[in-house]
Design a protein around this nucleic acid. Structure first.
Lengths: 244, 244
DNA sequence: CGTCAGGTTGACGCGGGTCAAAATGAGTGG
DNA sequence: CCACTCATTTTGACCCGCGTCAACCTGACG
């Protein structure tokens, strides 16, 4: 077992939705085999690779992406401290996409065999982690909605609102904003826009007095109006205590 | 227990990827409480509704969709006979989207308490169904790639290729095509295009001699070229026997 | 033979892509 | 502390894929 302060973010995330006993927490802590660091822009899991362990992000920002032969890239989800970024490899064993860091990252490595043992001993945790992977799928669906039906500024607005709530859960955001040290190219790959147009949309959001992205920080100027612009409905994040 | 011939499609889908014993099959059959029919274009699960049962599609076509206040709608996945369309409600309990039929449908109702009992008795099936929900998430990611990075014709090409493989698994497609009784409006809601532009893209696919959609049937004229156009990579469907 | 859902086509405009260049800023070595 | 490099941001000019609007066509069905 490896002790690590940032692991608390993961428990904050779990406890946001479900009750977790001290014994269950200990069981999860016992699954961590080691802690690693990755530099920025490092692909740490490649599509198709056979996996025997999952990666729990402790600190930093990572993403999942897919690309096409012509070089176009789509980020399908962003991940932050506390996220079990490839828990889905526990059942899939091979992934259909790449995992890459967008900043320097610290991660915990969790072998699948330890998860097997954990879930055999405490089946409730299996259902709870299944739930977590279903929230990731819900995020994918919301992004599909954005990519298919929202305009450029609306997509960015929706993204900033989503990250705000997700980061608050793990104590990485306050009511007025949060750190987001991504490049505009990264944001473009999230929203399906070009860098140039992403830049223009950011300017519009700034000029309309809604939100401001500067030196790696998102600062809300009018959160209510931003949510309205994005037609933001946080239901898909499944925040708060859950039934069952 | 309710006997139903079309339930075999579901077992075909499971056996495509995993070994399934006769006992496991019987256990699953035992979870079906009743069979229902829905007419075309019927919303049968609404977002936010508290759910105590899941729906297994036996026959027909259904979809998941989300919409915005301004009326724009995005279909996030299509479902066919054999698909456990809202298995994710087993862990989520409330969905973030609507479920709607696109043709007349027959469905099997599976109470969550029966799934609890099944998974308690045969934990392997829990992991197997978790896997299935992860394939749905992989489909979402591929659609994100389409919506964000592919052009109109490419999105349609990718969609036709995906459905081809998925329908072959349950015996609803042959090498040259398959029945797809959807309107162009439905296809538009899948691809994030307008009906008008969907129509133009279909014409282009037809005129380029790639694929042809006519009277509810998809007929491939040059499948290889179509896959090339879409840059289609079927890995994300996780077809064939899986490790683990 | 009237009605209506759905398919098809044309004219036109806009959101966002493309290309190119300049501005800014963080690091790095002298 | 300056010179230089390289990544990133920003802006302008131009263009195209796709949206919008509107009309017309087709086929199923009563």
């Amino acid at each position: 077992m490896v002790e690590h302060a940032h692991l608390d973010r993961h428990f904050s995330k779990l406890r946001e939705r479900h009750v977790l006993s001290a014994e269950e927490e200990a069981g999860i802590r016992g699954c961590v085999q080691e802690v690693r660091s990755y530099r920025r822009n490092q692909v740490f899991i490649r599509r198709g690779q056979l996996l025997g362990e999952s990666t729990l992000l402790l600190d930093g920002i990572a993403c999942r992406y897919k690309d096409l032969r012509n070089g176009k890239r789509q980020i399908s989800e962003l991940h932050f401290g506390g996220d079990f970024v490839d828990l889905h490899s526990y059942t899939l064993k091979r992934l259909d996409h790449e995992l890459m860091t967008l900043t320097r990252c610290e991660v915990a490595i969790v072998p699948h065999v330890k998860l097997d043992a954990l879930f055999a001993a405490q089946p409730r945790l299996a259902k709870l982690y299944w739930f977590q992977t279903m929230v990731d799928a819900a995020v994918h669906r919301e992004w599909e909605l954005s990519l298919g039906q929202r305009s450029g500024v609306e997509r960015l607005a929706q993204l900033f609102c989503e990250l705000h709530l997700r980061l608050q859960v793990v104590g990485l955001a306050d009511p007025n904003g949060y750190k987001l040290p991504l490049t505009q190219t990264d944001l473009a790959d999230c929203t399906g826009l070009t860098v140039v147009h992403t830049n223009r949309c950011l300017r519009e959001l700034r000029e309309r007095g809604l939100v401001l992205l500067n030196s790696g920080k998102v600062i809300f100027e009018d959160l209510e109006a931003l949510r309205c612009l994005a037609d933001f409905n946080p239901d898909y994040l499944y925040l708060g205590p859950q039934p069952g």
